[in-house]
């Protein structure tokens, strides 16, 4: 019923507008073309000015209304730089925006057609043109300068003490791998991928034997400790989007990528700051990756070193789950038990 009314109102509105337009056309014919053109010129000029004023009020209104809806302070060191660059750019572009838009609509209103005036012949002025070539050029140099300075800071090498975590995207989930005690991520090869070995780790590589594999659970990071993410994908291009850290990097099959940052706020801190007890750091897939793209998300828990250590000792290397015989802590078992452990690990502790 409601839909019907809305459609009826729309149709009625269209009809009324159409009739008004038709009526004004008849009036125009009666009054003579030249006269009505001048009249509509005035109306249009006024409307342009009104549009400018309403538009600027709209800019202010949107800004006030949506203030609280942005993400809030960045939760990483790089995020702070990115936000600063963003605010510098907003400040500069806002000034240019207001000046040019006001000039545009004001000129259109001020210099509307009038019989008393003649248009001013003004084909060019080299000095003026030089000024507005040089000023934008200088402004942009400043922006480029800041931009590239921050860019190299962000994309430069990660600090030596950074922890490493591998992130692997596939339709439509995120998997993580920690390098274990040796701090080295073992080699992998995609043709080794099986149900038991979802990342295709090469078991002969000793660096793989202590690597910890996590799926279906959050990634854990330590607050104020740099982290270097080694990013890959199994099937199509995904993207590790970390809005709260302001970071983003594509996950490309066949071409590993990296990014590093330092989280500066724990999840508990963020829960307090955002007044949201359910707050989680989210990994959203930011690159269209297929039909389940919208649902592809992961979570990150940022915690203190102590909390992290407690969590870490509970994790078991994937290698031991696949080859329980090699586990020094466990007595030798038969194959049935081996499978059972695999399931238990995959289901996680």
């Amino acid at each position: 019923m409601q839909t019907f009314f809305i459609v009826a109102i729309l149709a009625l509105g269209f009809l009324i507008t159409f009739q008004i337009a038709k009526a004004s056309e008849y009036v125009a014919v009666l009054r003579g073309e030249e006269q009505s053109r001048k009249q509509s010129n005035k109306v249009n000029a006024f409307l342009l000015l009104a549009f400018l004023v309403l538009g600027l009020i709209g800019v202010y209104y949107c800004n006030e209304n949506l203030k609280g809806k942005i993400l809030g302070e960045a939760a990483s060191d790089h995020g702070v730089l990115i936000d600063r660059m963003l605010y510098i750019t907003i400040a500069i572009t806002f000034i240019v925006f207001v000046i040019t838009q006001v000039a545009l609509f004001w000129f259109a209103y001020k210099y509307q057609h009038s019989d008393k005036r003649k248009a001013y012949y003004y084909p060019h002025n080299n000095k003026l043109e030089l000024i507005w070539t040089v000023i934008p050029a200088i402004t942009l140099t400043v922006l480029v300068g800041f931009g590239i300075f921050y860019w190299f800071k962000i994309t430069g090498d990660a600090p030596k003490n950074a922890m490493q975590v591998e992130v692997v995207g596939s339709q439509f989930k995120w998997e993580f791998r920690y390098p274990g005690k040796d701090g080295i991520l073992g080699k992998k090869y995609f043709k080794n991928i099986t149900g038991d070995n979802p990342l295709g780790q090469i078991w002969d590589d000793p660096a793989n034997q202590d690597d910890i594999y996590i799926v279906g659970e959050p990634m854990h990071l330590v607050v104020n400790k740099p982290v270097r993410l080694v990013i890959g994908a199994k099937d199509v291009i995904h993207d590790v989007g970390l809005a709260h850290f302001r970071m983003k990097m594509d996950a490309v099959p066949g071409t590993p990528t990296t990014m590093w940052f330092t989280p500066t706020k724990t999840t508990a801190q963020m829960k307090k700051e955002t007044n949201n007890p359910d707050f989680v750091y989210e990994i959203s897939c930011d690159q269209m990756c297929g039909q389940g793209h919208w649902s592809m998300r992961g979570e990150i828990v940022v915690e203190t070193q102590e909390e992290f250590d407690v969590w870490m000792v509970q994790q078991k290397p994937k290698y031991l789950a696949v080859f329980p015989d090699k586990d020094p802590a466990k007595p030798k078992t038969d194959t049935v038990a081996k499978q059972a452990t695999t399931v238990a690990v995959a289901g996680s502790h």
């Binding site: 053109r37 509509s40 010129n41 249009n44 000029a45 342009l48 040019t100 000039a103 545009l104 000129f107 259109a108 210099y111 509307q112 057609h113 009038s114 005036r117 003649k118 248009a119 001013y120 003004y122 003026l128 043109e129 507005w132 070539t133 934008p136 050029a137 942009l140 922006l143 480029v144 931009g147 590239i148």
Partner: peptide, 28 residues
Amino acid sequence: LLTLLIAVPSAIKVFNWLTTLWRGNIRL
């Protein structure tokens, strides 16, 4: 650098359009 360079000719165009309107006798 190259991308932001494009803003310079774009700015020139905008200012020139504005000056074309300036002191004109505009038919709307």
